[in-house]
Nucleic acid binder design. Structure first.
Length: 694
DNA sequence: CCATAATTCTTTTTT
DNA sequence: AGAATTATGG
């Protein structure tokens, strides 16, 4: 194998074959390259590809790694197990479902399904969902599960009244999942661990199977993921993990960057290699990223450097509003394309998914090719969810959650009362809703599902979709409605067939089981399509691990980024800053930071000051323009209005640094203004020019 | 049981 | 602003 393109440390990492290895790899230091070459090297050294397990966090990363290994070793790459933690967990469950009390055709509940199950349980228990938010319950349960706590163990740790209630719901929730023959996302990690604990001989099989384990983004692993791989690698200890503490951005999911520190404790003879040279970005971009991240207090300083040229300065643009933000980006992209940049080398990244909406509108107008990665937009539509529920029920009739969703879709005259009767009966008998159906209109529904079950055995997926639409009456209902909205729904359902068709062609598979697994774990429509040259729109979280020539980071405003919910707590804020570090370091050649003076949020016009992260970047890296004048240092005289200014208590005003606020107090010299969280109340010189009436 | 009106969320981030 | 949930009346 040719290692010429690698530096000393990279070579060392690739050539380390046996024993634990920790690679601390800064952004853009070539870690993916090292990982892929390492796999190729192992194969070259005679390791059976089927003994290699490589784990990534996102499906995109897994896909990319597969392609790159394929590029190095050819078809034998397919014999390696390269997947996300969750799909790896699913694979183990599929191989051992019976030992865990499940039927073969168990299904995965997504976070919406999980939420409706919790709501149902709470209703059953007469818990007011206004008193305790079901989402809080869901998150608490998920948190406990990821700490590998059973409801009984969780009980030992809690004291608050609300947590005790959560615990009771947790118990019912756990039982309900088994009864529904369903698992949630967390189960994909913790059930395999349970399996290994209860059946050591099975653990042994997996230890022999996966003699070499590589894990990417190790700083993002949570307790469950940590334990899972620790168990499997316990025998041979050929475990190689790659991580960067500065890029740890999943603590909300229980990720614990301390796992990196634990690694050296767990494996006393672990070798550690640091990759500190950045090959990706210009000096300007890297320096900007470093000047932001150095503001984090809880951080081990490191020395990431670059030999690349200085490159262009960063462009900071302050748009008038969110639409202008979009149109500005479009106009810049047009210039970039004229200058020879390729669409697929341009990315727009934002903090929240909701921001993609306005951007998409502007892109549609511009007719530039774009793709929104991770857009729930399609899968979140009612008609698509209904269709998927049909598929899940056809495959797993015990799935009460999805069955309840569609038993009256389209309208069949089955209302709350009928369903409640069914549920009560099913509970008494200890059977599923499906089994409980014996009479009435619901029996017709059952017959439809029975027929479709047969169809699912006999025809292709795409044909099955057609049969569902016909036999359920969904198509008929939408066609007879003759509204634009109904037409769009039909179109979306037709579009869904292109996803199944693509799946069938790509995988050569037509099984409902495989398709359901795929859409449960890859809930991103773009992953199902072939993607030619397009401009990429995605969140900062999903962009991790990728790189582009040109990156636009948009919505650089306080309370969007850093997000309002994360700007108060110091730890949260530091995570936001790491996220900013991730965002900036995606850019290879040119970085744009964009924000809007005002923006519609929750249907209200809100005004937020520029993100603090912009100010943290040394201004020498940012191009000076008319538009982006940094917080001006003008002498006090010129900042005061001539003459007297008076305000009324309760009046809405805008202040340049803190945005919208309400006047809550006034005397002859000062005015007191209450601003939105997290700014609080501030006192100003009354006729200061930074304050304006709305 | 269902259509319409009124009201109340929603936007962190992912598998 | 738009979606989702709940109330109301037929």
């Amino acid at each position: 194998m040719n290692l010429d393109g690698l530096n000393k440390e990279q070579k060392e990492a690739v050539l380390h074959k046996d024993g634990p290895l920790l690679i601390l790899a800064g952004a853009g230091s070539g870690k993916t390259r090292v990982l892929t070459m390492k796999v190729a090297y192992l194969i070259e050294q005679g390791v059976d590809p089927s003994n290699i397990l490589a784990i990534t966090f996102t499906n995109k990363a897994a896909k990319e790694m597969k392609e790159r290994i394929y590029g190095l070793v050819g078809r034998t790459a397919f014999d390696c197990q390269i997947s996300t933690f969750h799909s790896f967990g699913l694979k183990i469950l599929k191989e051992n479902y019976n030992l865990l009390g499940y039927d073969k055709n168990f299904t995965i509940l997504d976070s919406d399904d999980t939420l409706s199950l919790i709501k149902k349980i709470m209703k059953d228990m007469n818990i007011d969902i206004k008193q305790i938010n079901p989402k809080y319950v869901r998150n608490s349960i998920s948190g406990a599960k990821n700490q590998l706590l059973s409801p009984e163990e969780y009980e030992q740790f809690i004291s608050a009244e609300s947590e005790k209630i959560v615990c009771k719901i947790f118990k019912r929730y756990r039982d309900a999942l088994i009864k529904n023959n369903s698992v949630d996302f967390d189960d994909l990690l913790i059930l395999p661990i349970k399996l290994f604990n209860e059946y050591p001989n099975i653990l042994k099989i997996y230890q022999e199977k996966y003699k070499y384990i590589l894990i990417d983004e190790y700083q993002d692993t949570n307790e469950a993921q940590y334990i899972l791989t620790k168990k499997i690698s316990a025998k041979y200890k050929n475990i190689c993990v790659v991580g960067d503490n500065d890029q740890s951005v999943y603590s909300f999911r229980g990720a614990n960057y301390k796992n990196i520190l634990n690694f050296e404790k767990d494996y006393k003879d672990a070798k550690t290699i640091m990759l500190e040279q950045n090959y990706r970005s210009t000096k300007t971009i890297l320096n900007a990223a470093n000047s932001v991240i150095k503001n984090n207090e809880f951080r081990k300083d490191k020395n990431l450097w670059s030999d690349n040229e200085d490159g262009e300065k960063i462009t900071y643009y302050r748009a008038y509003d969110e639409k202008h933000e979009g149109s500005y980006i479009i106009s810049e992209i047009k210039k970039l394309l004229d200058a020879g940049y390729k669409e697929k080398e341009i990315a727009i990244i934002y903090r929240t998914n909701a921001q993609s909406r306005v951007l998409e509108e502007e892109f549609l107008k511009s007719r530039l090719p774009y793709k929104i990665v991770g857009s729930f937009f399609f899968y979140n539509r009612k008609e698509i969810k209904d269709l998927i529920s049909y598929l899940k029920v056809i495959y797993n009739e015990k799935d009460d959650v999805n069955l309840s969703r569609i038993i009256n879709v389209p309208k069949r005259g089955i209302g709350d009362k009928t369903i409640n009767n069914l549920v009560t009966y099913a509970n008494i008998e200890g059977i599923s809703i499906y089994e409980a159906i014996e009479t009435g209109k619901e029996l017709e529904f059952k017959k439809i599902i029975e027929e479709l079950k047969v169809d699912s055995e006999n025809c292709t997926l795409t044909d099955l979709i057609d049969k569902i639409l016909d036999k359920s009456g969904i198509r008929k209902e939408l066609e007879s409605e003759k509204s634009l909205e109904a037409d769009i729904r039909l179109e979306n359902l037709e579009e869904f067939k292109s996803i199944t068709k693509n799946f069938e062609e790509r995988e050569g598979l037509v099984s409902l089981e495989d398709f359901l697994n795929e859409i449960s774990l890859v809930s991103d429509i773009e992953e199902h399509k072939n993607n030619p040259d397009k401009i990429t729109l995605m969140t900062m979280h999903s962009v991790k691990g990728l790189e582009f020539d040109v990156v636009f980071v948009v919505g650089m405003e306080e309370s969007i980024f850093p997000h309002a919910n994360s700007s108060f707590d110091k730890q949260d804020l530091e995570e936001e800053r790491r996220l900013c570090y991730v965002a900036i370091t995606r850019a290879k050649k040119k970085l744009y930071l964009v924000n809007a003076k005002r923006r519609m949020l929750f249907g209200r016009d809100s005004i937020n000051p520029p993100s603090r992260f912009i100010e943290e970047i040394d201004s020498c890296y940012i191009e000076e323009t008319e538009n982006n004048k940094m917080p001006k240092k003008i002498d006090k005289e010129s900042m005061l209005n001539d003459g007297e200014v008076t305000y009324n208590i309760g009046e809405l005003v805008i202040q340049d640094s803190y945005g919208e606020g309400i006047v809550i107090g006034e005397d002859d010299k000062f005015v007191t203004i209450a601003f939105n969280y997290p700014h609080g109340t501030k006192k100003f010189i009354k006729n200061h020019k930074s304050i304006r009436r709305v």
